[in-house]
């Protein structure tokens, strides 16, 4: 019965995710972590509220597994001592600063498709639903995680993105509130608060 395609089940057994390193967040997400083989959108009101710190445990884990992490068009230069302090191998990190905005998404797609690349973090200037779908497919093929950062935009929500997970961050005292805007596969609670260790 279970093997038959004609049987519809409400919730597919989801693939196990990549542990986020924050127990509250793991509990709130249906994959018990970040969804592997997909793309996440992170909306943040400002740079510097802890938007990278959220992914440091994941980066550290991937770096231990020997998988590479790519930073595409970061707004500032990642500070090497801070990364090595967090236990992330600098040898596995590569910084890419494309000259043209459209090259950001091309590079990200190419990197996500590579199995050796575990994580690609990008700061794109604009996103379209077509390009997001391409990224999503590439991430599934390479079994890697893509993270797209964007600054909080005023006004109503833009067009819906074919994205697995979309979160909005807000800073609180010694932590972050993560508002789960869209979770493919069902959302258990709309808002999670994580505190820094």
């Amino acid at each position: 019965m279970r093997a038959s395609h004609r049987l519809w089940r409400g919730l597919d057994p989801l693939p196990p995710g990549l542990p986020t390193g924050f127990a509250a967040l793991d509990a709130a997400l249906p994959w018990r972590g970040w969804p592997a083989g997909s793309v996440i959108e992170v909306i943040t009101p400002a740079w510097g509220i802890g938007e990278l710190r959220l992914f440091l445990p994941l980066m550290q884990r991937l770096s231990q597994q020997g998988r590479h992490a790519a930073w595409i068009a970061p707004p500032y230069v990642p500070y090497a001592p801070a990364l090595s302090h967090a236990g992330i191998s600098l040898a596995g990190a590569v910084i890419i600063q494309p000259q043209h905005p459209q090259q950001i998404l091309w590079s990200m797609e190419r990197l996500l498709r590579t199995a050796a690349c575990g994580l690609a973090v990008a700061w794109p200037q604009q996103l379209t639903s077509v390009s997001t779908r391409r990224l999503q497919l590439a991430a599934r093929g390479g079994h890697s995680l893509g993270v797209l950062y964007s600054r909080q935009h005023a006004g109503p929500r833009r067009q819906r993105m074919p994205i697995t997970l979309s979160v909005r961050l807000d800073a609180v005292e010694n932590g972050l509130t993560i508002e789960l805007l869209k979770v493919r596969g069902g959302c258990r609670q709309p808002r999670v608060t994580v505190t820094w260790p």
């Binding site: 590479h68 230069v77 990642p78 090497a80 001592p81 990364l83 090595s84 600098l90 040898a91 990190a93 590569v94 910084i95 890419i96 600063q97 494309p98 000259q99 090259q103 091309w106 590079s107 190419r110 990197l111 590579t114 199995a115 050796a116 690349c117």
Partner: peptide, 27 residues
Amino acid sequence: EAQNWQHTLEELEARLGGKTIRHIESV
């Protein structure tokens, strides 16, 4: 796998130009 990674970076370099791909290290 390592070769695959190198090839990917080379391809990015060919497309994006020389100094767009860099590594960082601490001193």
